[in-house]
């Protein structure tokens, strides 16, 4: 259903977490993954590379995940990109904030490959609509 060659950008300031997400994506068959350590680096990479999916942490120095999301939605060449937010909080106001800013999905740490798969598929379905 989904293209396994899809190019992902995983954004997190904690490299262990990037590795976790990367491994989980690999488990689901997505191997074309690049990493960025904060929103600024991510935005730079997005503008220069052909990425098709962004998975970003919320809380990061320099540029947070929500700022990155807003920047992506404000950029004509990037605004179509699906962006999934990873966060440690399942607070309602956080989810609302992410949704209003245009997040395609939302996943709460810690999560398993199965949860990630489910969330990704939901996003893919919405994209195909």
């Amino acid at each position: 259903m989904s293209d396994k060659n899809m190019r992902f950008l995983v954004v997190d300031d904690f490299s262990t977490m990037r590795r976790i997400v990367r491994n989980l994506l690999k488990e689901l068959g997505f191997t074309n993954v690049d990493e960025a350590e904060d929103g600024q680096v991510a935005l730079h990479k997005l503008k220069n590379g052909q990425f098709e999916f962004v998975v970003t942490d919320w809380n990061m120095p320099n540029m947070s995940g929500i700022e990155l999301l807003k920047a992506i939605r404000a950029d004509a060449s990037l605004k179509h990109l699906p962006v999934m937010m990873i966060t440690a909080e399942a607070k309602k106001e956080n989810i609302i904030e992410a949704a209003t800013a245009g997040a395609s999905g939302y996943i709460v740490k810690p999560f398993t490959a199965a949860t990630l798969d489910e969330k990704l598929n939901k996003i893919f379905q919405n994209m195909n609509k």
């Binding site: 300031d13 904690f14 262990t16 977490m17 976790i20 942490d57 809380n59 990061m60 120095p61 440690a88 740490k109 810690p110």
Partner: peptide, 15 residues
């Protein structure tokens, strides 16, 4: 920064 430090450790510990 300190907030984020604990936050990040928490996230990793969860996994």
């Amino acid at each position: 920064d300190i907030f984020r430090g604990f936050h990040t450790i928490k996230g990793g510990a969860g996994f």
